[in-house]
Nucleic acid binder design. Structure first.
Lengths: 227, 227
DNA sequence: ACCTGAACACCGTTCAAGT
DNA sequence: ACCTGAACACCGTTCAAGT
């Protein structure tokens, strides 16, 4: 009544790039990246698919924008923390973001240019290392090592055929039953005695590798010739 | 002439699953995974797309088979080497395989079941760690850490918008020119003083992270309570 | 047993036409 | 300036029909 729009008429909020990106991300989160089509995205926004092209150049532009929006969610390394604590916090935040948006892991494809949030993120990570006493070369090595680990972990986590603990147990039981134990003895052992333990969750493996790498980087940093 | 097939008639080799998989892999290697369509694959094999369904269940089955074929290319860890040397060799071989078939990196999607080559590979890696003195839990940690790093590295490498050194230099110059140096100072520094050095190649970063992780795993192994 | 042609329900994207 | 309907060139997959 207070609204100037006619009663019963669909309250159509003006379309813009941000709303298109946010809705696309929500669709990909809910149904996987393969469920994100221009027609479905239009429908979700109460508009024909063709209207989307007034706000994005094409589907690749849409995907690039979605990736940059995910990077914008990552907590930047704090200047007040020391490099290791700062990098650890942002790494956990990075992995959380990839966990919320699993499709982002595989989408970093060739030719997709980094957006502003991505560039800011990279700049801050490198800055954290440089200010923490890393040489340029060692900072480049460290950046590559940590981010490779995070991306790869997120990808492996995504490729697991289960998410909850109960599903994992069911799945592992099933796999174990199918695995010829004499053909894959070590896999069978690991599944039976590790994966099938109550409370197992692959996600819990993340901190081990992260701290392994951060501790090793600290040693490499300390071993640098004094500059 | 010596052939029993009629002159001029297309020499049609009998279709089978292996030939379908091999041709699909060649197509994906050459033109990217998005260029692999059932119709194009049929054409390449001299057959209508519909005929493929006599040898594969559907496209997902095709992709699963392709992934397993990539795993079959990876050098299994050798029993004669010690765990570290064996794991290092297979890790380099793993990365090489992902480098030859970049599409395989992103394809490990949820729901895709591991094939026999994949299972054998996993079994041998875990076996190498167990025989090298790793507890079950530490073997699981180590497996996750190393393979996450390899996958993530391959993905980052794939997402670079260049492959050769000259392309990299051109690209970096371009990026540097576009980067507002006062907005992304550390990124600008790293690009100017590291990436733009002659001979830079992101792929060369691989051994640093790999050895960082393997050395750290050795320390973790040695720190285990004697069993 | 294997291959094919036609058909179905989808895609991303263009373009002229509407308001 | 933004939205739409019709159309184009594609997809994966089914099914009955051929050999």
């Amino acid at each position: 009544m207070a609204s100037p729009s006619k009663a019963g008429a669909p309250h159509r909020v003006r379309l813009n790039r941000e709303r298109v990106l946010a809705t696309a991300i929500a669709l990909a989160d809910a149904g996987g990246i393969e469920s994100l089509t221009m027609r479905r995205l239009g429908e979700e926004l109460g508009v024909e698919a063709m209207s989307l092209y007034n706000h994005i150049a094409n589907k690749e532009d849409l995907l690039t924008g979605m990736i940059d929006a995910v990077f914008a969610e990552i907590e930047l390394p704090s200047h007040s923390d020391n490099w290791k604590a700062a990098l650890r916090k942002r790494s956990v935040s990075f992995r959380d973001a990839l966990s919320r948006h699993p499709w982002a892991t595989a989408l970093k494809d060739s030719g997709t240019n980094p957006g502003p949030a991505t560039l800011r993120h990279h700049d801050r990570v490198i800055g954290t290392l440089r200010n923490g006493g890393f040489s340029i070369a060692l900072a480049a090595h460290a950046f590559s090592a940590v981010d490779s680990y995070i991306y790869g972990f997120a990808m492996q986590e995504k490729s697991l055929p289960f998410t909850t603990d109960e599903e994992a147990a069911t799945m592992a039981h099933l796999m174990l039953a199918q695995l010829p134990a004499n053909e894959y003895p070590y896999l069978a052992e690991l599944t039976a005695e590790y994966v099938l333990r109550p409370g197992y969750n692959y996600g819990n493996e993340f901190p081990f590798g992260l701290d392994l790498i951060l501790d090793a980087l600290e040693r490499a940093r300390d071993a640098q010739p004094a500059g």
